[in-house]
């Protein structure tokens, strides 16, 4: 994927994340400067991972798309976001909020898919999974590039990763 193609591909994810956070978490988010991630270490304590497969069709040509959306939160940020979404007052990460991140990533990808279709991407999404614990690693598909986008919110910083071929 060229730089220009990546920018086009990533824009619907950022836009969808803004809508999801404004509607469900009642806060605005601000994406920071993207960078290429060279390691597999998560930048947060809780990560939601969603696989993306499908095709990119343009000018009569089709190519396979294999990508991954990862959202990673430090515990403190995660708990604050979960409390805002669920109208709760938890003080630490627990089972009752363990799938909050997965649901957020599910909504972001679901909405991004619609806009990506307009750009020629016909995508399927997997059911999201959650990885927890400090210093956990993410299994990126081989041969892919991971772009790390820090995101600022009123509840603290978290990270979006888009992994593409």
């Amino acid at each position: 994927m060229s730089n220009q193609q990546f920018i086009e591909f990533s824009r619907p994810f950022i836009q969808a994340a803004k809508v999801v956070f404004e509607t469900m978490v009642f806060t605005k988010i601000e994406p920071g400067k993207p960078s290429i991630k060279k390691d597999t270490m998560s930048r947060g304590d809780v990560s939601a991972v969603l696989g993306i497969t499908g095709k990119f069709e343009k000018d009569g040509k089709a190519e396979d798309v294999k990508a991954m959306l990862v959202l990673s939160w430090p515990y403190d940020t995660y708990v604050k976001i979960a409390n805002a979404m669920l109208m709760e007052s938890f003080t630490e990460f627990n089972d009752a909020i363990s799938d909050v991140g997965a649901e957020i990533s599910n909504m972001i990808l679901g909405n991004a898919k619609r806009d990506l279709r307009g750009l020629g991407y016909i995508l399927d999404m997997s059911i999201p999974s959650t990885i927890g614990g400090p210093n956990h690693t993410i299994n990126y598909p081989p041969g892919t590039t991971v772009v790390l986008i820090p995101i600022i919110s009123a509840h603290g910083e978290f990270f979006m990763e888009l992994c593409t071929k």
Binding site: M24, A82, M85, L86, M87, A96, I97, D99, V100, A102, E103, N106, I127
Partner: peptide
């Protein structure tokens, strides 16, 4: 819903 988060949001 398979996600307890969304069930809770909808119930709220």
């Amino acid at each position: 819903d398979d996600m307890s988060t969304m069930r809770k949001i909808i119930k709220n």
